[in-house]
Design a protein around this nucleic acid. Sequence first.
DNA 1: CCTTCCCGTGAAATCGCTTTCTCGCAACGA
DNA 2: TCGTTGCGAGAAAGCGATTTCACGGGAAGG
Lengths: 338, 338
Amino acid sequence: MRSRTSARAQITDVAARARVSPATVSRVMNGHASVAADLVERVLSAADELGYRASPVARSLVLGRTQTIAVMVPDMANPSFQEVLRGITRAAAADGYRVLVADSQEDVTQEPGLAREARRHCDALVLCAPRMSDAELAALVPALAPVVLTHRGPTPGVPTSSADYRGGIAALLDHLAGLGHRRLVYLAGPPSSASHRRRLEGIAAHVADHPGLSVDVLPCGVGFEEGYAAGEAVRRSGATAALAFNDLVAMGLLSALHEAGVAVPEEVSVTGFDDIPFARWTTPPLTTAAVPHGDLGQEAWRRLRALLDGEEPPPDVLVHPEVQVRASTGPARAEGAA
Amino acid sequence: MRSRTSARAQITDVAARARVSPATVSRVMNGHASVAADLVERVLSAADELGYRASPVARSLVLGRTQTIAVMVPDMANPSFQEVLRGITRAAAADGYRVLVADSQEDVTQEPGLAREARRHCDALVLCAPRMSDAELAALVPALAPVVLTHRGPTPGVPTSSADYRGGIAALLDHLAGLGHRRLVYLAGPPSSASHRRRLEGIAAHVADHPGLSVDVLPCGVGFEEGYAAGEAVRRSGATAALAFNDLVAMGLLSALHEAGVAVPEEVSVTGFDDIPFARWTTPPLTTAAVPHGDLGQEAWRRLRALLDGEEPPPDVLVHPEVQVRASTGPARAEGAA
DNA sequence: CCTTCCCGTGAAATCGCTTTCTCGCAACGA
DNA sequence: TCGTTGCGAGAAAGCGATTTCACGGGAAGG
C-alpha cells in the first residue's frame, strides 16, 4: 500500500529505499549543502528507480512560491494580446516559470476581481488592461504586486512594457503626408482605451504642427466588423487616406472598400496598427505601425523576474513602432477626383 | 508580528478574532457541517474584516487537487490552437478551474517531456498534439491521465474532441466538383500531421469515387510563407482549384496569386480549412471548411470535467466541418484557357 | 593522548489548511 | 431521576515537502 508504484512515490519512500532520512533526500534533490558522495549516489538511484519527483504543491507551501505567474488579457482571440501572452509564456518557461491565463472576456467591470483572484494563485501578475481606468488601476495595483503592465502607457509605480502609440501614429501620419495626403480620417478605438487616447494626442500634435493637414475622427472600434461598417463613412468623408485603430479594423475596412469597388491604394490609402502576422498577407498587404508584441511580452517577463528576485526592475520599455510600408498606401489621388 | 495586516490573514487569525477554533472557521468557509448561526456570523465578519481568503496552495496540498488544468499546444500563434485554448479557458473558468498553458514551440521532440511536466502541476491535461506519433502518444497517455485530446482523430482509451478532417476535405471536394473543377491540387500539411493524413484519405476516397477528377498533392506546410511559396507550383500545375491545408496556407497562396496577376476565383479557386476569424476578411473572402475550434475546446473541457468528477465522459466529439462558401471559389475556367 | 571544532546526518518543527476523532452538553426515553 | 443518544465544537493528525536544530564522530591542534 505504501511502496506500491500505484501512487506517486514520496520523499519518505525514497528515503527508506536509500536508507537515509527525508532531510537528506531533500538536500540531494535540491543540490543543497554537502552530502557524502555515496549517499548522493544511493539517493539518486533510489529516486530514479521510484520515478520520484517532489510534489510541486508541497514545495510551494513550504517555499512560499509557486513558480507560476498569471497573465490577464481582455480577449485571447485578439492577436496583439495573444502575441504578448506567447512572448511571456516562452520567456517565463525559459526561467522555469509556468503561466496561468485569465481571460476577462472583454468585460472591464470584472477585471479587477479576476486579476485579484488570478494573483492569489501565483507569484506575480502581468496585466494587459488597455481599457481599465487609471483610477481603478491605481487602486488595484498595490494588491497585485509584483505586477507589470502592458498595452498601456507608463504608469507611476509599476514597471511597464508598452509601445509609443503616440509616436506610432505620428510616424504613420508622416508617411501619409509624405505621399501627399492632406485629408485623412482616423477610425477611432474605444474612448476608454488608453492607447487610443495616445493616438489621439499624436494626431492632435501632428495636425497642430502641419497646417493644411486635417484628420477627421470617426468613432469605430477594435474589430473586423467595426472596420467593415466604417467603410461607407470613410468613402463619404472624401479623405484620401484612413488610419485604422488597429490591423483588424484595417482589414475590415479593406474588405468594405474592395466590395464597394474602391481601389486601395489608388483611391484611398489604408493603414493599420500593430503589424500582426496577418498584416503582411492582406490584399493589398497592409502598411502598418509595427509593434513587436512578442518582445513586449518578453520584456514584461524580465521586469517581473527582477521583481520576483527582489531586484530593481529595468526601466520601463517604450518601443517605438516602426512604419512597415507595404502596398495599402500610395500617393494621394488628385484633389477632387473622388 | 502575527495579527499585523502586513502579511495575509491566516485561518488562525480569523479563528482568534472570532473566538472559535480553526476547524470551525474552515467549516464555515466551506459551508460544511452545521455550525451555530451566531458562530457563523462571528466567523464571517471576522473573515471579512481581515480580508481572509484561504491559501489555495495549502488547500491543494490537503485536498489533493489544484483546481487547475494544463493545455499543451504546439504554437500559441496559430489561430486554431489559440481558439481551442480560449474555448477551454472560458469553459473551465466557468467551473472554477484555471488553466496553465504549455507551448511546445512546435518542437515535437520535447512535447512528451513538456506534457508530463505540465501535468504534474495540475489535475488534468488537454493535449493538442497533431504531430505526435500514435506510438508516442499511446505511451504517454497513461502517465497523463486524466487527459483529453484535440486536433487529432479519435484514439482508443482517450476522450477526444476533434473534427472530421476527412469529411471536411470531401465536402470541399464536392463543392469544387459541383463548380465544374476536375483538376485540383492539394497543398499538403506536414507528413507527420494526423489531420493531414485524414485529409489525404478523404481525397483518395473521393477521387476513387469520382472518375475524371484528379487531385495532385503538393508538399507544402502549415503557414503563410509555405502557401505563398507554393503559388508558382499551383500555377504551373494547370489546376483550376487549390485546396490548402489550412486557412493560413490559403492566405499565403492568395497573396502569391494576387501578385502574379492570377484572378481568384476566375482563374483559380482557392479553399482553406478551419475558418479562422480572418478567413471572412481576405480578398476575396475565403471559402473554407469551418471547424468550430472554440466549441471543440468547450467539449474538451466537458470531458475533462467528467473525468475529474469520476464520471464517465461523454462520447468522443467529431464535428463535421461545414463548407463556408465565400468568394474565393467559383466555376472552373474553361479547359485549356490557362 | 586528550580536547575542540567542524561537518555530515537525522529528528523535529513548519508551511496553512481540512478532517477525522474526541469530548461535553442538552435532550430524550425509561 | 438516571442512562443514552445525538449534535456541535475543539484538539490533533495529517497533506508532502524544506530547513533549523541537535548530535555524534573524525580531524586538527595543544
